[in-house]
């Protein structure tokens, strides 16, 4: 099956998922991101790579935070950025997703950054662009349903590489609501592609997808056991709507079993880093003492996120 993210030369033309991308492409993105990191220290915090290009932020699902990071990244590349909050406009008038896309194509877009509540929506868009002969427009998945959030996955990898130097000898634990998490799926694919020998998923059975082992991870229900000797701990956000009883009895009981406290973190390696895609629920999945502690690298993730998104956009625009 042809991977719609790659052109016939094997170059990245859309970033839809980490799954199926060769290690070389992931490493290239991380290496390029390293070069962008220094730009923010300069007098002019911009490079002219995407000058004259138009990046459309298509957010069918609200997320000011993610949209802003893409906007900053595009602007640092000198692109023109248009933010379209589609939840409130066209779909409300009954326009289909592909109608919206056709309309925007006519506005000379060069790149679509897509956030959508349905898994696979960016694939549909990429497929449509190819069908109508507009595959010169690049698609970046900024989160689709439960499926993927590839730039978050990449920035997590950047963070891990920054602090741990390489991936070959690491033990990484992902804790929490993996069932509903596109971040977890992207992290798992990225970690296994980059050669991390041991990826652990920790959570109650209600929050872990079926057949998770097939994705190359080891499943733990006991957090104390799962955290033991880990180099990296990735905490996931627990959405409010999951706490109301059907999947978990309460936020308090969840915290008791799966909240990251200094005592639980002590089971990991002493130099383990703690990551979180944000926004955090303090006292639900993470204790403030850990979130603000010396092992947390959560704010570094945000900084790296901009550089990684710049790298992704500039590599796509060049292919």
């Amino acid at each position: 099956m042809h991977n719609p993210q790659l052109n016939s030369n094997g170059e990245l033309i859309h970033l839809l998922s980490i799954e199926g991308l060769p290690r070389g492409i992931l490493t290239h993105i991380l290496d390029t991101a390293a070069s962008f990191l220094g730009i923010t220290d300069r007098e002019v915090k911009k490079v002219p790579l995407l000058r004259g290009k138009s990046v459309f932020n298509l957010f069918f699902e609200n997320s000011t935070r993610t949209r802003t990071t893409f906007e900053i990244a595009a602007k640092r590349l000198s692109a023109d950025v248009l933010n379209l909050d589609i939840t409130r406009s066209s779909t409300a008038k009954g326009e289909t997703l592909l109608d919206t896309i056709d309309n925007l194509c006519s506005m000379h877009a060069d790149m679509f950054v897509v956030r959508h509540a349905s898994s696979g929506a960016p694939y549909l868009i990429a497929d449509h662009l190819k069908r109508v002969g507009r595959d010169d427009i690049h698609v970046v998945n900024a989160g689709d349903g439960r499926h993927a959030h590839p730039t978050q996955g990449l920035l997590d990898m950047y963070t891990i590489r920054h602090f741990k130097k390489n991936f070959e000898n690491l033990r990484v634990a992902i804790v929490g609501d993996i069932l509903h998490s596109r971040v977890a799926r992207s992290d798992i694919h990225a970690l296994t592609t980059l050669g991390v020998p041991e990826v652990r998923a920790i959570g109650p059975q209600t929050l872990l997808p079926t057949d998770l082992g097939r994705m190359g991870v080891q499943v733990y229900h006991d957090m104390n056991e799962g955290l033991r000797d880990c180099d990296v701990v990735i905490m996931l956000r627990l959405q409010n709507e999951r706490m109301n009883g059907a999947l978990l009895p309460s936020a308090g009981e969840y915290f008791k079993h799966y909240g990251l406290t200094p005592a639980k973190l002590a089971l990991a390696k002493p130099d383990a880093i703690v990551m979180h895609p944000g926004p955090m629920n303090r006292g639900v999945e993470i204790d403030s003492a850990v979130a603000d502690g010396p092992q947390a690298v959560i704010l570094d993730q945000v900084t790296f996120g901009i550089a990684v998104r710049m790298a992704v956009m500039s590599i796509l625009a060049g292919n």
Binding site: E19, S119, G120, D144, G145, R146, H147, A148, R182, R185, P209, T210, D211, L212, R214, M215
Partner: peptide
């Protein structure tokens, strides 16, 4: 189907 593919693609499963 609530199985390998649905889990991977993030599709809500029917067991």
């Amino acid at each position: 189907h609530d199985g390998e593919v649905g889990s991977r693609l993030g599709l809500t499963g029917i067991p």
